[in-house]
């Protein structure tokens, strides 16, 4: 019964119709990041009946997330649930008719490439350009579109990259800020998130039902507080010698010797450390050995181990990553890491 009229209002919308709804059911979308943009995108796509939604995220839920990351609850905060896990549980409660795959991982070149062969489209919900450049190269290599989206304060930007048609992110590299000035140190209001997601999800629906002529084809920017909306036709910025999307491309972000092993998390006073595979630690063994140290406050759930020592907090995930809270200094973070994790 639920199944029969769940999508009725969306099917009444003429550009989708019953045929479009069936197409959505057969599609698979990858959402990279399950923070503010990712929660909202995922909820909309799952409610819309996109057959399979995969989510990847490396982080866990914190109290400051709840103002805008709509899939999460106070319970998720107190249990320090990984966002991907909490999101999957909530999304399946919303719609058990679709498949949701959630992965608590760092979205590097290998991980994103392994998804690429299965997905129709990628939605950007990350908080950094390192991951976006990897997404961009994966998109070009496997000829899968991706939809850039980002926001800070009351401002947002979005652009759909269609391989073989539009400029890619690498073509626009001269315009990408290289410092951390875009971090959420200036705050964010939820309407800015929702506006970016409205554009991203609408673009996704258009693409997935095959109405590509209706896609925006422009870079869109807006500032909700200043009542501004900008549309820029950036087609002329496509570079003939682009290392990611031209005929002589090298896909530099997949060729990774460059691969990031440490990353400072945007506005969080946190450094992530990601050891090579062979160096991974077993978190329950580590918990056992640390129990003897009375100065270390431990918290453990099936997904992560958290330890607090003075002003510093370390959180270890099963996939081997560690978040070090209380510092932005990579060298200091590494020192703490070697001290407690080894």
């Amino acid at each position: 019964m639920l199944e029969n009229n769940r999508y009725h209002r969306q099917e009444l919308f003429q550009p989708i119709g019953k045929e479009g709804q069936q197409k959505l059911r057969n599609c698979h979308v990858l959402i990279v990041g399950a923070g503010a943009l990712g929660s909202s995108s995922a909820e909309q796509l799952v409610r819309a009946g996109v057959g399979t939604v995969s989510l990847v995220d490396r982080d866990y839920v914190e109290l400051t997330n709840l103002q805008r990351q709509q899939l999460y609850t106070e319970e998720d905060v107190s249990e320090q649930m990984p966002k991907a896990v909490a999101a999957e549980q909530r999304l399946q409660k919303i719609n058990q008719d679709v498949t949701v795959h959630a992965h608590v991982i760092d979205a590097g070149p290998e991980e994103l490439s392994s998804f690429a062969q299965y997905v129709d489209l990628m939605i950007d919900a990350t908080d950094n350009f390192d991951t976006r450049f990897v997404m961009n190269d994966v998109s070009q290599k496997y000829e899968i579109p991706w939809i850039y989206g980002a926001c800070v304060s009351s401002y947002g930007v979005t652009f759909t990259v269609l391989p073989g048609e539009t400029p890619c992110l690498q073509c626009l590299i001269d315009y990408i800020p290289k410092d951390g000035a875009t971090c959420d140190t200036v705050g964010i209001i939820n309407p800015a998130v929702q506006m970016v997601v409205s554009y991203q999800v609408t673009e996704a629906l258009k693409y997935l039902v095959g109405d590509t002529g209706a896609m925006m084809g422009q870079l869109i920017g807006f500032d909700l507080w200043k009542n501004e909306r900008m549309e820029l036709s950036v087609a002329s910025l496509k570079k003939d010698d682009c290392p990611s999307c031209s005929a002589q491309r090298t896909l530099p972000y997949l060729a990774y010797q460059n691969q990031l092993k440490t990353a400072v998390l945007c506005g969080r006073d946190t450094v992530q450390i990601r050891p090579p595979r062979e160096e991974r630690v077993n978190i329950s063994d580590l918990a056992q050995s640390l129990k003897r140290n009375e100065q270390v406050k431990l918290f453990e759930n099936p997904y992560l181990l958290s330890m607090e020592i003075d002003d510093v907090r370390l959180v270890l995930f099963q996939d081997g990553r560690t978040l070090i809270h209380g510092t932005k200094d990579i060298t200091e973070a590494k020192k703490i890491y070697y001290q407690y994790v080894g």
Binding site: G33, P177, C183, G221, G267
Partner: peptide, 27 residues
């Protein structure tokens, strides 16, 4: 759309229209 190298040579006049967007990373 202007390329960066055009900024110093591109002349402007009264009534001209500009759309200015900057990329951000947050999400």
């Amino acid at each position: 759309i202007l390329k960066k190298e055009d900024h110093s040579s591109r002349e402007i006049q009264d009534g001209d229209q500009f759309e200015i967007v900057h990329f951000v990373g947050g999400g």
